[in-house]
Amino acid sequence: MYLEIVTPDSKIYTGEVKLVQVPGTDGSFEVLKNHAPIISTLNAGKVKIVEEDDSEKFFDISKGVIEVNRNGIILLAEKV
């Protein structure tokens, strides 16, 4: 799935990922391949992504929104 992390000041990350874990307002959740479409607001916290080659990356975000739609993920964060 294709992930984009965008903030008002820059595009932080774009690329293919295997897994995304985000701090949702109702609790942390993970997005895997073929996840159902979802829009959720996010709290401040850590975003964990696992890339195609199994390497992990972390981003600290402060509030945001995630939209998952047909294996395209857009994560809008106010600050990273």
């Binding site: 959740f29 479409p37 979802i38 959720s40």
Partner: peptide, 27 residues
């Protein structure tokens, strides 16, 4: 016409997104 799941709820998200969108417009 995608059926989205909403978390925590549609209203909450709208409440969150609209101010954000306004701020961005201002910026």
């Amino acid at each position: 016409n995608i059926d989205y799941l909403f978390e925590p709820s549609k209203e909450e998200i709208v409440k969150e997104l609209i101010p954000k969108s306004l701020k961005i417009q201002f910026y």
